[in-house]
Simulated assay, not measured.
Amino acid sequence: MLELDDIIELQTNSQTEKLSFATRYLVQINFTFDLKVRSGDFSGTSHFCVRRDEIESFCKNLLDLYSSLKGSARIEDNDSDGFVEFSIEPNGNLYVNGQVGGTYEEQCMKFKFKTDQTCIPRFVQDFNKLLLNKNGNY
């Protein structure tokens, strides 16, 4: 296990809409994050676990979305039904929605907010820096 403390934050230019993945550790090919979301007056935090290949695919889909201004990109928590999804309109409005925590838990939060596509390159760049970490072994 490799302990990490990187924070990957979506730059939304808003104090009321925030999304971040605070990296906790890497075990073999599995990253564990604290997913933190603020959407309006609501906020939530939950563990979010994904494999390296899922992050790579998510980043590729985000860059495709950014360059074509169409489509969506989604990443899902492997330990619950939590997820984060980006979808875009042709005018560049970017919608970020998802669920923090699992529906089976005592508390979970669904969220949706609007930002613009200019936040995507830095977000992907930060994930790619994280992927430079080698596999965490037992």
Score class of each variant (00 low, 15 high):
residue 31 F to N: 12
residue 80 S to W: 01
residue 16 T to E: 06
residue 104 Y to W: 01
residue 83 F to N: 03
residue 74 R to H: 03
residue 43 S to F: 11
residue 84 V to T: 11
residue 69 L to S: 15
residue 123 F to C: 11
residue 41 D to L: 11
residue 84 V to Q: 05
residue 82 G to W: 07
residue 66 Y to S: 08
residue 128 N to F: 00
residue 4 L to T: 11
residue 27 V to M: 10
residue 16 T to M: 02
residue 135 N to W: 06
residue 117 Q to F: 06
residue 60 K to L: 07
residue 68 S to E: 11
residue 121 P to H: 07
residue 93 N to H: 10
residue 26 L to S: 10
residue 1 M to W: 13
residue 6 D to M: 13
residue 68 S to G: 01
residue 94 L to P: 14
residue 120 I to V: 15
residue 90 P to F: 02
residue 113 F to P: 06
residue 79 D to Y: 11
residue 129 K to D: 14
residue 78 N to P: 06
residue 101 G to K: 05
residue 123 F to A: 10
residue 66 Y to W: 13
residue 44 G to Q: 09
residue 32 T to V: 14
residue 67 S to P: 00
residue 7 I to W: 03
residue 24 R to D: 14
residue 107 Q to C: 00
residue 67 S to N: 14
residue 65 L to T: 07
residue 114 K to G: 01
residue 117 Q to I: 03
residue 44 G to R: 07
residue 124 V to E: 04
residue 74 R to G: 00
residue 116 D to S: 11
residue 113 F to S: 08
residue 106 E to F: 02
residue 112 K to T: 00
residue 81 D to E: 07
residue 8 I to G: 08
residue 128 N to H: 04
residue 65 L to Y: 10
residue 121 P to K: 07
residue 107 Q to I: 03
residue 137 N to P: 01
residue 107 Q to E: 07
residue 95 Y to H: 02
residue 37 V to S: 08
residue 77 D to T: 01
residue 138 Y to S: 10
residue 64 D to K: 13
residue 75 I to P: 06
residue 130 L to V: 02
residue 4 L to P: 12
residue 108 C to R: 01
residue 7 I to S: 13
residue 29 I to E: 15
residue 41 D to E: 14
residue 100 V to L: 02
residue 124 V to R: 01
residue 54 E to Q: 14
residue 34 D to Y: 07
residue 3 E to M: 10
residue 62 L to R: 09
residue 118 T to V: 12
residue 66 Y to M: 05
residue 18 K to D: 04
residue 138 Y to F: 13
residue 57 S to R: 13
residue 80 S to H: 00
residue 79 D to V: 06
residue 91 N to T: 02
residue 32 T to E: 14
residue 72 S to N: 15
residue 24 R to I: 12
residue 55 I to P: 04
residue 138 Y to I: 10
residue 11 Q to T: 12
residue 137 N to Q: 09
residue 22 A to C: 05
residue 81 D to V: 02
residue 122 R to Q: 14
residue 5 D to R: 15
residue 10 L to N: 05
residue 88 I to V: 15
residue 49 C to M: 12
residue 43 S to H: 06
residue 31 F to E: 12
residue 78 N to E: 14
residue 91 N to Y: 01
residue 67 S to M: 08
residue 90 P to D: 04
residue 119 C to E: 06
residue 19 L to T: 01
residue 38 R to D: 03
residue 12 T to R: 00
residue 134 K to F: 04
